[in-house]
Computed example of a mutant assay.
Amino acid sequence: MSLPPVSRVVAGRPLAEEVPVALVFNGTTQAAMMATPADIEDFATGFALTEGLAAREEIGEVEVITQPNGLEARLWLPEERAAALAARRRAMAGPVGCGLCGIDSLEQAVRPLPRLAAGTLSLSTAEATSALDALRQLQPLHDETRAVHAAGFWHPDSGVTLAREDVGRHNALDKLIGALLRSGAEVSTGALIVTSRLSVEMVQKAVMAGAPLLVSVSAPTAHAVRLAEEAGLTLVSRAGGRLTAFSHAHRFSEDAHAG
């Protein structure tokens, strides 16, 4: 199977493609997700980090294998990670709307998160508005299909420098984080900008990647705000047209500037 992100036109409309993607670590499938068949190496790399399967320095090359019914992304992690692999093993064919579907235990769904360093990075209203608008310009698949989410990385010196798209909001974020890791970028030096609601798994992934700010056009859930408060993550939303900080608002203000 080898499909582009768009492979069909129905009733005059291009349709976003989604295929099963098996994420295989040390020979064992940890997740089977429905995803857009692009940037799979980034996807697997980001997933390994944000799901706590490996530290950044433990993630090596990703081999993508085309199978009759989908794609396999294969990684090999240090053997001492075997226990973590077993603890986080998923048995899922995940619907695109839920990043937690199929988790084997309730404990894993609400796993403890590390506490982010305070840092000096801050974001003004103008910068957040500019970042959200810039991300909108980096969504070619959305422009073609109107059916995908996006995640982008904003840096105080260069604006939004990188973006990834996927039918799943959490997949798009994993792809972005994986792309940042593969490029050698430091996620802690910027903000993650997304087009989806700020749900629990989006907060978990941002914190695991070390991002101090997560900004979206959509609103957070109540539990996402609780997790962000505990982990030291700043959540900012433009839901309803007005930018609002829901947690750790010291990093976000009208007069703030990135430092």
Rank of each mutant, 00 (worst) to 15 (best):
E58I: 07
A54C: 05
P95L: 13
L3C: 07
V215T: 00
I65E: 11
H250F: 13
I59H: 01
L141T: 01
V148L: 07
A93M: 14
T50V: 14
F153Y: 15
V187K: 06
R56M: 03
V9L: 14
G190Q: 01
E51S: 07
T234A: 10
V9C: 13
R111H: 10
S158E: 15
A256M: 11
L192C: 08
G241C: 12
E17Q: 14
E186W: 05
R13H: 14
D255W: 09
L132R: 08
E107R: 07
R88S: 10
T221S: 15
D104Q: 11
P37W: 01
L227W: 07
A150R: 06
A151I: 08
L116H: 05
S237A: 15
A179D: 09
F246T: 01
G240P: 11
A131L: 06
L100F: 14
T221M: 04
M202L: 15
Q108C: 05
Q204P: 00
A211M: 02
L121F: 14
H257K: 13
E229T: 15
I193S: 08
S7R: 11
D143S: 05
T161D: 02
R56D: 06
A249P: 06
D143Q: 11
A91L: 15
V187Q: 04
R89D: 05
L3M: 13
G159I: 07
V236I: 15
A44P: 02
G168A: 15
S199T: 09
G99R: 14
E58W: 03
L138D: 02
E165T: 06
A191N: 04
A126W: 03
A84I: 03
P4T: 10
A91D: 15
R89S: 14
K175P: 06
R197G: 12
A231K: 03
V62M: 02
P220D: 10
E127S: 11
G70H: 05
S122P: 02
A22L: 11
M202H: 12
T120I: 10
T29V: 14
G259W: 14
G232M: 05
A86N: 08
L121V: 07
I40C: 00
R56P: 02
A16W: 04
S183P: 03
A249Q: 15
V21K: 01
L100H: 13
V200A: 10
V236P: 05
A191L: 02
H257A: 14
V24P: 01
R238H: 10
P4Q: 07
A16K: 01
S7K: 09
S247R: 01
A87M: 10
V215R: 04
T28M: 04
H142G: 03
A206D: 10
T189M: 02
D39M: 00
T221P: 02
I65V: 15
E201C: 00
G99A: 15
M34H: 06
L123Y: 01
R242W: 09
V148A: 05
E79C: 07
E144K: 11
A93I: 13
A31D: 09
